[in-house]
Amino acid sequence: MEQETGMSKPVAVIACATMAFLYVAILYAPTLILRLPAPSSVKEYLIRRFICATISSFMSLVFCAFLLPLRRREATYLFRVYGIRLDHLWQAVVFPLSLTCLMYAGSLVFKSLLLVDSWKEHMHLGEGNSLNCIKDILQNFLAGLSSTASNVLAWRTYVVAPLTEELVFRACMIPLLLCGGFEIYVVILLCPILFSLAHLNHWMEIYGRQNYSLLKTFMVVGLQLGYTLIFGSYASFLFIRTGHLVAPLVAHIFCNFMGLPKLFVRRTGMVSLAFIAGTVAFICLLCPVTQPHLYNDGTNDCECWHGYCSSNLNSKC
Rank of each mutant, 00 (worst) to 15 (best):
L142E: 04
F239A: 09
N256I: 08
S147G: 15
C52S: 14
R35T: 08
K9D: 00
L189N: 10
S130N: 02
W90E: 10
D136S: 13
M219Y: 11
I137G: 02
N312M: 10
L167W: 10
A251P: 01
S311K: 15
S213P: 05
S146A: 14
I193N: 01
A20N: 03
A277C: 14
M204K: 12
L163A: 13
K43S: 14
P248D: 11
T268Q: 09
L86G: 15
V93M: 08
W305Q: 11
F257E: 01
P175E: 08
I51C: 07
P288S: 02
Y308M: 09
M103R: 07
M219S: 09
Y23S: 12
N132H: 14
V289R: 01
V271S: 09
C309K: 02
A235I: 00
F239N: 08
I230H: 03
L32N: 05
A75S: 09
C52Q: 10
P162T: 07
G6W: 05
V42H: 08
M19L: 12
I47M: 12
M59H: 02
F141G: 12
N312Q: 15
C52V: 07
N129D: 15
Y212D: 01
W203V: 11
T228F: 11
V42T: 13
M173I: 03
R267K: 14
N296W: 11
E44N: 12
H306Q: 12
E303I: 12
V62S: 04
E74F: 04
C302T: 10
A92I: 07
F237I: 01
C16D: 01
G298Q: 04
T290S: 13
L286D: 02
I55A: 06
I84S: 04
F63I: 04
V81W: 02
G126F: 07
L214I: 12
C133V: 09
G259D: 10
S60E: 01
I84R: 09
H244W: 08
L99S: 07
V250C: 07
G232C: 05
T31Q: 15
L86T: 14
L86D: 05
H199G: 08
L249Q: 02
F58S: 10
A161T: 14
V42E: 09
F237K: 06
